[in-house]
Amino acid sequence: MRDTSNAIQGASRDAEIVRDVLDGNVDAFSLLVLRYQQRAYAMVFRAVRSASLAADLTQDAFIQAYEKLEQFSPGRPFYPWLHAIALNIVRDYYRKEGRQDILHVDIDSVTTIADEPPAEARLDMDRAVAALEQLPILYREALILRYREEYEFTEVARALNIGLSAAKMRVKRGLELLRDMIGGE
């Protein structure tokens, strides 16, 4: 269930919870977990494609977020900050484990579904979704952050640990890749 509430309201609610936690109320952190565990887990799962591993890494991400909570700037939305932490944990995992044999898309590589001209003029939604699954993680996550979670580019940049113009490029490139993968115009 996506949170469609006003971004400012959401941010201020999160800020309250963070303040609570920093004051010593550990249980308040669970409110943040409840709000964001679904999205964070899903992102990690898309990267590692293993439920138990994703659960562990997501857990680590939240625990790290809790331990670094003083570094979080309360005026901003919480999820991009958490997303960046989770992404780093995923990166570290890849570095430690080396490449995986089965279908773990390398972070910076590009793969395409078999090239073929589209049979129908209309866009096939399933192909689009399948293409999304194929996109390298950092393009896909950029698109999701921008168009599904509807974050501003500044927040997308923060979530991905990159600069503002790099974030814009990622999104643009991601759209292009997606369009090309499903056959283009």
Partner: peptide, 29 residues
């Protein structure tokens, strides 16, 4: 870009987080 592209991104479904995630996290704090 074809409008369906944005639709696909917006409608992209998340894998369900397991129930043990929350207690696992809380236990680690």
């Amino acid at each position: 870009y074809p409008a369906g592209l944005y639709e696909a991104i917006r409608g992209y479904e998340d894998a369900k987080a397991p129930a043990e995630l929350l207690p696992g996290i809380l236990n680690g704090l």
